[in-house]
């Protein structure tokens, strides 16, 4: 009995020692020399592995950061959208560098073609993925630029920050958004854009990317940008450009003056998180506004076609602001 015990103890120990030696040898041979700062940088990162920085994961990003720091002594080309400036400062501290401040960003859905604004004309019967539907057809409303509403962006989001609104059929971004850009990549129509969050979370953007001419665009959607150019004229900062029948507000130049919002004849420009405007004198129109906005907008369109007529503008300004307010919840 004792023999058995002793024999097994000895043999097992021997196996253990041999294995340890082999392991040590192998470990020495295949040792990877690694900058210890990579681990430190990785610890400072949010560990979301979202890929928003353009790298596969936080570890790869950390490696790239350390690499850049050792070779070029700057990490200005890199940014972690999840952690934002705080994280980048922490990283820079580890690497002994400094970074310039970057504005935090947020994903913005640039389509307001809800079921009401862009009524459904066609029924789509197929897999619920925008990528496929986009290849198949223009969309249930007929707008070839609009949101397909099948939620590829929702599926792509790792942060629970974008959800479909069942009522409008459009995705809505909430403040969990870290601007990683996953939804931007997932959207086959490039509807979602990363824009600066803006001061006090306030921002103004054109909620449409339709490049069709006014007529065809409006046929499918009441709130399409028709490329009339009113906003371009009214903008005091040259922040708005008009290209291919579509207005675009450059967030760098936009000073959030809100002048463009009321002049838009189709309510395509959205302002977010602004306090409500003080109601202008034309209060009496409140009642009828809901009833006949389409007519007014058409009128506005016709005026615009003539490329003159400044007189109507003030009226428009008064009328439009409240509509703009009510829409903002939809798009936030």
């Amino acid at each position: 009995m004792n023999d058995v015990l002793i024999f097994s103890v000895i043999s097992l120990s021997a196996i253990g020692i041999v294995a340890a030696i082999v392991l040590y040898g192998v470990a020495q041979k295949f040792k990877v020399i690694e900058d210890p700062r990579i681990d430190e940088v990785e610890d400072a990162l949010p560990a979301a592995n979202c890929g928003g920085c353009g790298f596969a994961g936080c570890r790869n990003f950390a490696e790239a950061l350390v690499d850049s720091a050792t070779q070029h002594e700057n990490i200005d080309d890199f940014f972690c959208p999840v952690g934002g400036t705080d994280t980048m400062n922490a990283v820079a501290e580890i690497l002994g560098l400094s970074v310039e401040e970057k504005d935090p960003q947020i994903a913005v859905v640039r389509c307001n073609g809800s079921r009401q604004n862009a009524p459904q004309k066609i029924v789509y019967d197929g897999p619920a993925t925008c990528a496929f539907a986009h290849n198949l057809f223009a969309g249930e409303s007929g707008c070839p630029y609009g949101c397909l509403g099948l939620g590829d962006c929702v599926a792509a989001c790792d942060f629970d920050a974008i959800h479909m609104n069942a009522e409008t059929g459009l995705p809505e971004v909430n403040d969990k958004c870290v601007a990683c850009g996953a939804c931007v990549k997932a959207c086959p129509r490039d509807i979602i854009e990363l824009r600066p969050k803006g001061k006090k979370d306030r921002r103004i953007f054109v909620s449409c990317i339709n490049e069709e001419k006014g007529g065809p665009a409006r046929k499918n959607c009441k709130v399409a940008c028709i490329g009339c150019g009113k906003c371009v004229k009214v903008c005091p900062f040259d922040a708005i450009t008009l290209e291919n029948n579509l207005a675009y507000i450059d967030p760098e130049k936009c000073k959030l003056c809100r002048k463009c919002v009321p002049v838009c004849p189709t309510d395509a420009i959205h302002e977010v998180n602004f306090p409500p405007r003080k109601p202008k004198p034309e209060k009496k129109e409140d009642g009828e506004k809901r009833g006949q906005p389409a007519q007014k907008k058409e009128a506005a369109e016709k005026q615009e076609a003539g490329k003159k007529n400044e007189a109507g503008k003030k009226n428009e300004a008064g009328k439009k602001n409240e509509a703009g307010e009510s829409d903002k919840t939809n798009n936030e």
């Binding site: 459904q120 004309k121 066609i122 029924v123 789509y124 019967d125 197929g126 496929f132 198949l136 057809f137």
Partner: peptide, 8 residues
């Protein structure tokens, strides 16, 4: 009727 769209 509303037309249906689907892949072949």
């Amino acid at each position: 009727n509303t037309l249906t769209i689907s892949g072949s």
